[in-house]
Simulated assay, not measured.
Amino acid sequence: MKSIILLLCITVFVVAEETYDTSSDNINLDEVLGNERLITSYSKCLINQGPCTPEVKKLKDVLPEVLETRCAKCSEKQKQKGKQLVNEIKNKNPEIWKQLVAYYDPQGKYEEAFQDFLKS
C-alpha cells in the first residue's frame, strides 16, 4: 500500500512539473492589450530595456524554452492566451513585434515552428 501511495505522489509531482506555472492564467488579457502603456512597458521588460513586473519576469524567464519546445509545457489556456497575445501584438503593434522577434529569434530559427503553433 505504501508503495502505491509513493508511486502516486511521484506521478503527481512529475505531471505538475511538466507544465508551466498557471498562477497568471487568469490575467485579463483584453485589459492588458487595450492599454498601450502596459504593452510598451511589458515589451521593454522582455527585451531588457526596462523594469519587469513579477508576472512578466516569469514569462521572460521561460520564453526561450517556450520557443524552443513549441510551448510543450504550456497549458491549453496558456496556449490560447499566447496565440491571442501574439496575434494582437503583430497586428496592432508591429514595431514592438519586430523588436521582440529581433531579440528572441534573430536568426529566424523558430519562425516555422512558431507559425505552426499559431495555426494549431
Score class of each variant (00 low, 15 high):
Thr40Pro: 07
Thr40Ala: 13
Thr40Asp: 15
Ser41Gly: 14
Tyr42Met: 12
Ser43Glu: 01
Ser43Val: 14
Leu46Val: 13
Leu46Asn: 01
Leu46Glu: 04
Leu46Gln: 06
Ile47Phe: 06
Ile47Pro: 01
Ile47Cys: 02
Asn48Arg: 13
Gln49Asn: 13
Gln49Trp: 07
Gln49Val: 08
Gly50Ala: 09
Gly50Gln: 06
Gly50Cys: 08
Pro51Ile: 09
Pro51Leu: 11
Pro51Gln: 12
Cys52Asp: 00
Cys52Phe: 02
Cys52Gly: 05
Cys52Ser: 01
Cys52Asn: 00
Cys52Leu: 03
Thr53Trp: 01
Pro54Leu: 08
Pro54Ile: 08
Pro54Tyr: 06
Pro54Trp: 03
Pro54Lys: 13
Glu55Thr: 12
Glu55Asn: 10
Glu55Ser: 12
Glu55Leu: 10
Val56Phe: 02
Val56Thr: 11
Val56Ile: 12
Lys57Trp: 05
Lys57Pro: 00
Lys58Val: 07
Leu59Asn: 04
Leu59Lys: 02
Leu59Met: 08
Lys60His: 11
Lys60Ile: 05
Lys60Glu: 03
Lys60Thr: 07
Asp61Tyr: 08
Val62Lys: 07
Leu63Phe: 12
Leu63Asp: 02
Leu63Arg: 09
Leu63Met: 10
Pro64Cys: 08
Glu65Phe: 02
Glu65Thr: 09
Val66Lys: 06
Val66Gly: 04
Val66Asn: 05
Leu67Arg: 03
Leu67His: 04
Glu68Lys: 11
Glu68Ser: 09
Glu68Gln: 11
Glu68Thr: 12
Thr69Ala: 03
Cys71Phe: 14
Cys71Val: 08
Ala72His: 11
Ala72Leu: 08
Ala72Gly: 11
Ala72Ser: 13
Ala72Tyr: 05
Ala72Cys: 09
Lys73Thr: 07
Lys73Pro: 02
Cys74Tyr: 00
Cys74Gly: 00
Cys74Ile: 01
Cys74Phe: 04
Ser75His: 03
Ser75Ile: 07
Glu76Tyr: 06
Glu76Lys: 13
Glu76Phe: 02
Glu76Asn: 11
Lys77Val: 10
Lys77Thr: 13
Lys79Gly: 12
Lys79Val: 10
Lys79Phe: 00
Gln80Asp: 11
Gln80Lys: 14
Gln80Met: 09
Lys81Trp: 00
Lys81Asp: 11
Lys81Val: 09
Lys81Phe: 01
Gly82Lys: 03
Lys83Tyr: 02
Gln84Ile: 14
Gln84Tyr: 08
Leu85Phe: 08
Leu85Ser: 12
Leu85Trp: 02
Leu85Thr: 14
Asn87Lys: 15
Asn87Val: 09
Glu88Tyr: 14
Glu88Trp: 06
Ile89Gln: 00
Ile89Trp: 01
Lys90Trp: 09
Asn91Ala: 15
Asn91Met: 15
Asn91Gly: 15
Lys92Asp: 15
Asn93Asp: 15
Asn93Arg: 15
Asn93Thr: 15
Pro94Met: 03
Pro94Lys: 06
Pro94Asn: 05
